[in-house]
């Protein structure tokens, strides 16, 4: 279970203090699919950064299984990201000189899987699960379509069986049809693994299909 209490993030800019998030409170149960909608600059990416321990809040708590990740040391935050969190990015962010399967194996390495052969087997299973053939698994990202790259990105996010998947506009770079397929894939896989998903999206149609939808406006979150 993920619980956010009184979360605030401010930073200094040239024109003064910017309050990216103000006193945000919400909780998501394990296995739920939550979506966050909002305009550009409303603080969506900032919220994902804080939930993924990529950044630290100015105030407030982020409780994952009752542990406040905002108070973790740098090394523990790294471990948290490796084991508890899976990221899916709008621009896929695969490592360009690694093949699809190597990208997934990289996440498994960071997750602590020592055996190379076990990593290879697990990555193969994940990529087959998202619909990549053996041949496609050996291709580098530049030789995969956008939809295929996002499938690899999802496989990588799921690699270490994380408790939470944070998805930043996962269908934003895809055409409508492919976007729907990717959303369905993400939905089905996380249901299967009982994984919590928090996805930022502009697509109200997709948001409407999630378990819970939050609106983020000017740094303030409201339940829809």
């Amino acid at each position: 279970m993920l619980t956010v209490k009184n979360l605030t993030k401010s930073y200094e800019a040239a024109h003064g203090t910017v309050h990216a998030l103000s006193n945000v409170n919400f909780s998501v149960q394990t296995g739920q699919f939550a979506s966050i909608i909002g305009k550009s600059g409303s603080g969506k990416s900032t919220l994902l950064s804080l939930l993924g321990a990529l950044d630290t809040p100015t105030e407030g708590e982020i409780l994952v299984d009752d542990a406040d990740i905002a108070k973790l040391s740098g090394a523990k935050q790294t471990t948290y990201r490796a084991h508890k969190i899976g990221f899916v990015f709008q621009q896929y962010n695969l490592i360009p000189n690694l093949s699809a399967i190597e990208n997934v194996m990289l996440a498994l390495e960071f997750g602590g899987m020592k055996s190379g052969s076990k990593r290879h087997k697990r990555a193969q299973e994940l990529l087959l699960g998202v619909g990549l053939s053996d041949d496609e698994q050996l291709r580098k990202p530049a030789r995969l379509s956008g939809g295929q790259q996002q499938r690899v990105s999802i496989a990588r996010a799921l690699a270490n069986r994380p408790a939470i998947i944070l998805a930043d506009e996962p269908t934003g770079n895809l055409d409508s049809e492919t976007g729907k397929k990717i959303f369905k894939l993400l939905h089905d896989l996380t249901r299967k693994e009982n994984t919590t998903i928090i996805a930022v999206t502009h697509d109200l149609d997709i948001a409407g299909k999630t378990d819970r939808t939050f609106l983020l406006k000017d740094g303030t979150l409201t339940l829809q």
Partner: peptide, 16 residues
Amino acid sequence: RREIGVIKAIGGSNAK
């Protein structure tokens, strides 16, 4: 920089 950020985001430590 982006690649470094991605590696860190998916659990890669500074040392790695």
